[in-house]
Design a binder for these strands. Structure first.
Lengths: 222, 222
DNA sequence: GAAGATACGGTACGTGCCGTATCATATGCC
DNA sequence: GGCATATGATACGGCACGTACCGTATCTTC
C-alpha cells in the first residue's frame, strides 16, 4: 500500500487503474516525506478508533499529525481514499492460512484469523467503524471486497481443496458458501453482540464440519 | 404511538429506550400530532434509502415532511435516535418463524426471513447504513440487540428444539451458534458482497444441516 | 367561552467542518 | 547555488448542524 501517492501533477499517464501506478523514476523538487505519510495514517487510525467514522474530521487528523490540511489532500483525494489505505494496511496481515496438514486446524484458522484480527488488532475497531461505509459506499467497498474479502475467499477455498484431497472433507462440500459459514458468524457477533472467543470459533467450525442433522433420513438433510 | 403512563415525568427526561418517546397521558396544551410523527419517519425512511446515512440531512427530512426542524428535535434528541425508531419499526415484522412441521423448511425460513427483509424491504438499506452505529454505539446497539437480535435467536432456538423433538436434528446440535450459522452468512454478504438469492440460502442451510465432513474418521469431524 | 399551555411551520443565528487557494519557508536534486 | 516541489499555516465561501426565537394553531382547564 505504500509508494503510490502521486496525485495531480503526473502528466497524462495514469488512468484510475488497479495496478499501483509506477512512480515516475525522476521526480524533481522536494520529495514527499514518508514521515508525514505515516503520521497521517497513524492519526487516522487513532481518531477513527476514538471517535468512529461519523465524527472523523480531517482537520483533527491534520492537527494530531502535525500537518497542514493541504498536505493530506495532496496525497489522498477524499477521506474515503485515506481510510481505504489504512484499512488495507491493517487487513492484509490476517488473510493467509498456512498448510499445516490438518484440516480441522486449518478450518479453525479461517475463523480464528478473522476473529483475532478483530479482537486483537486495530483492524477490529477500525472496520467496525467503517462497516456502513463499506456496505454503502462502493468507492470504499469495491476495492475492499476485491482485495480483502476475495483474499479470504481464496484462502478458504485452498483449505477446502486440501481437506478434500486429504479425504477429510466431503468432495461435494459447498465451497461457494464456505467463507460465509466460517467467517460470517464472526462478523455477525461483531455487529450484533456475543463473545468472540476460541470456544465460539471451535463451535462454529465443528458445527460447519459435522452439521446439525441427525443420522435419520427425514427432515434437515438435503 | 401508544399511550404510556409516565406520571409527572418531564417529557425531555426519558433516556433513549426501547419504547418510543411516550409522553405522560395527561398533557396540557396542544398535543403532538401523530400525522407529523409519521411524516417524519416516512421522510427519514425515504431519504436514507435514497441517499444513505452519510448524506442524510435533518434539514431535508424537515423539508420533505413539511415540518420545522425544531419539531424533529423536540421529539428525538439526535438523528441516531430518530433512525433507531425507524429501524425497530422496520425490523419487527420479519422475526418469527412459523411451525410448519418441516424442519428444513423452518431452518430455511430462518435464513430467508433475514435475507428477504434485507433485499425486499426498506430494512435493508436502512440497516446497511446503520451497521457501524449498531456495532459502535451502545445507545443504538443495545436496544437493537435486545429487541431484534434476541428475537431472532429465540425464533431459531424454537426451530432447533422442534427439529430435535422431531428427530430431524442431532440433539447435540449447537444451539449457541445456530443463529450465527444461519443468519451470519446473510449479513456477511450484505456487507462484503455476493448474491442474496434463494439458492444461496438453500446452500447455507444444507451445509449447516449436513456439514462439510466426509464420512471418514480423520480430520474435520470433532 | 376565555385563559393558559404546548405544538406547529418558519426563519435567523453562531458553530464546526468541508475542500480550495495562497502564503512564506523548507528540502532535496541537478 | 538555483530550481522545483513539499510543507505548515492561514483565510475563504459554503453547507449543515443544533438552538432560539417568532406568530399561529390546537388542545385542556376553569
Amino acid at each position: 500500500m505504500t509508494a503510490n501517492r502521486q496525485e495531480g501533477l503526473d502528466p497524462g499517464e495514469r488512468a484510475a487503474n488497479t495496478a499501483p501506478p509506477a512512480r515516475p523514476v525522476v521526480r524533481r523538487g522536494r520529495p514527499r516525506s514518508d514521515r508525514v505519510h505515516r503520521a497521517i495514517l497513524d492519526a487516522t487510525r487513532e481518531l477513527i478508533i476514538e471517535n468512529g467514522f461519523s465524527r472523523f474530521r480531517l482537520e483533527h487528523v491534520a492537527a494530531r499529525a502535525g500537518v497542514g490540511k493541504a498536505t493530506i489532500y495532496r496525497r489522498w483525494p477524499t477521506r474515503e481514499a485515506l481510510v481505504l489505505e489504512l484499512l488495507m494496511e491493517l487487513a492484509s496481515p490476517h488473510i493467509e492460512i498456512e498448510d499445516v496438514g490438518d484440516t480441522r486446524v486449518e478450518l479453525l484458522a479461517a475463523t480464528t484469523n478473522a476473529m483475532r484480527a478483530l479482537t486483537e488488532t486495530p483492524f477490529g475497531p477500525v472496520i467496525r467503524a467503517l462497516l456502513s461505509h463499506i456496505a454503502c459506499n462502493p468507492a470504499l467497498g469495491d476495492p475492499f471486497r476485491a482485495a480483502v474479502v476475495q483474499g479470504r475467499r481464496d484462502a478458504v477455498a485452498h483449505v477446502m481443496e486440501r481437506g478434500i484431497a486429504r479425504g477429510d472433507l466431503d468432495p461435494h462440500a459447498d465451497m461457494d458458501v464456505a467463507t460465509e459459514l466460517l467467517v460470517g458468524p464472526v462478523y455477525f457477533r461483531l455487529m450484533f453482540g456475543g463473545e468472540l472467543t476460541l470456544d465460539f470459533a471451535e463451535r462454529v467450525v465443528d458445527s460447519v464440519s459435522r452439521g446439525f442433522s441427525s443420522g435419520r433420513d427425514s427432515g434437515a438433510g438435503r
